[in-house]
Design a protein around this nucleic acid. Structure first.
Lengths: 152, 152
DNA sequence: CCAATTGTCTATTAATATGGTAGATTTAGT
DNA sequence: ACTAAATCTACCATATTAATAGACAATTGG
């Protein structure tokens, strides 16, 4: 039940690109440095996101990556699915058995896991990277005012 | 974001033991056979649950395992935490940094993951094994009535 | 055109987690 | 004492995760 490093890095890179939307192509190198993500690892991640149609890339000098569409049209779920595959913990039940056997309780577990999946996706498929940018800005403002308060 | 085989087996064994609550000690061998779980693997799992205080065991002849308390006092979350550790996907952010740096977006991801954790635990910490027993019985009744319908 | 820069692709590696097994030991009932 | 059960310690194979290496392709500025 854990977010992989890959998805974690992907989210961070996506937030960075969202904060820099309309600035044009941003280089892997820059994202890697600012977000402290191993560059070569990040290459694979961004490549996967490009192949999934979430990012666009430009090769060569002054090339880089940028969002393929507006941040408010990309959800966290979109990104996590690319890196980690399906979000649902449903493969706990591989094959559905139709035997009306009194100890065949797997379908019951399956039922609960469907609920869990829904609970997760209700969060991840709702929050967009535009929301994330807003949260970043809010948290920065809050921090600044806190600093001010402490200074006084 | 996946339930481990270990937790899956644990849930199944726990449902089995809940269905057989007040019958006294049940042997690993029986659970293993009925739920088709590798016996030696199941040993480790039940041992972990006993050490966590969720099961009681009796050694020796006619020994076995039984719930340490009533099924309605044990939640799915209790069990999963024992086998898979913390449910929260929060270690995506290891250390909290207080730098008010404009690209320090980790805390924002952390915030979302707290929401996800809450969504998951709202399900898993609410459903008890008594509920699971009820679901098993309901699904059996439903199947029987379906069979009847098809037979007519 | 050329050289520098940047993304693309294919492998490989190291570390860790997962799923499962083996066998000796302890405990308790008959 | 004998037997059936849990317990403990250790091990192994495989898969996944996280990360790295290096050759290759495309683009642009000069």
């Amino acid at each position: 039940m854990k977010l992989s490093k890959k998805s974690d890095y992907a989210l961070r890179a996506m937030i960075y690109l969202s904060m820099n939307y309309q600035r044009g192509a941003v280089q892997i190198k820059e994202i890697s440095a600012k977000e402290k993500i191993p560059q070569k690892f990040l290459e694979n991640i961004l490549l996967a996101l490009r192949k999934a149609g979430i990012l666009n890339s430009k090769m060569g000098l002054r090339g880089g990556y940028e969002l393929a569409r507006s941040p408010d049209l990309i959800t966290l779920g979109d990104v996590i699915r690319v890196l980690d595959g399906a979000i649902a913990p449903v493969n706990c039940v591989s094959q559905i058995s139709y035997k009306p056997c009194s100890v065949e309780v797997t379908c019951v577990i399956r039922g609960v896991m469907m609920d869990v999946r829904k609970a997760i996706t209700d969060v991840l498929d709702t929050i967009t990277f535009a929301d994330m940018c807003k949260r970043v800005k809010d948290s920065l403002e809050k921090k600044e005012s806190e600093v001010l308060t402490y200074a006084i």
